[in-house]
Amino acid sequence: MASLPEQFGDQSLQQQLQTARSLKNGLSSRQQVLHSGIEALDECCKHVRPGDLVEWGIPPGFNGRLIPLQLLKQEIPPSVWIYHHHGLGVFASSWISHGVDLQRLFFICSENPVRELRPLFLEDTFKRIIIDAPRKFSSGDMAFVSQQARKQGQIVFLIRHFFLSEKRGNPYASLRINTWQSGKRCFSLQMVKGPVSGRISLPYAAVAEEHGNYNHGLLLES
């Protein structure tokens, strides 16, 4: 009777299983990549790894961009925010006031990022790429961007100017979140896809430091 090749022996299988388990343990104990300092938000993003694409649903007017911004505050690697808002430019002092280091975060305005900024996705100069409400972004573009991100260990945030729905999924995104400011006192996060589900509320003060302006603002007339 022909003997089993060595790699299929019981002993070997057991070893392989142990190695696989230790690999998994290694994965789970790996350090969290995205930090905000806000416990609830960090919990949502704890499984995000280099190479992942996170999709955000943030319609204009709801101040929701302050949430992904929290993840760009602490010791970030060189990052780029690709934006395209009709007639709107970057109000840099507000970003600085929220604690973003603008020596590390660069901006570029493009309505069709993959077509116009292809070299940016082909290199690993930026470890975080935020694509904010692109006017043109096909599913082919999405496949290209997520593939490049995986290849180069980048984390890509894709911000949509509408709320995301479970009805239309996105296989490329590991995490899909809707965010908005609800009332004067808090921000809301709705997890559409990710390790946790449901809705999370974050106090306003945790997201935007209070300096006596907004929360104590006088409601004059209505």
């Binding site: 929220h98 935007a208 603002g217």
Partner: peptide, 27 residues
């Protein structure tokens, strides 16, 4: 790109004055 920041003034009072302002504005 890479231009050094002015260290000639304390950023804090100027930065925190913009906290309640939006991230994008009309020029």
């Amino acid at each position: 790109i890479g231009a050094a920041q002015h260290e000639a003034f304390d950023h804090y009072p100027w930065a925190c004055s913009s906290t309640g302002k939006p991230l994008f504005y009309f020029e």
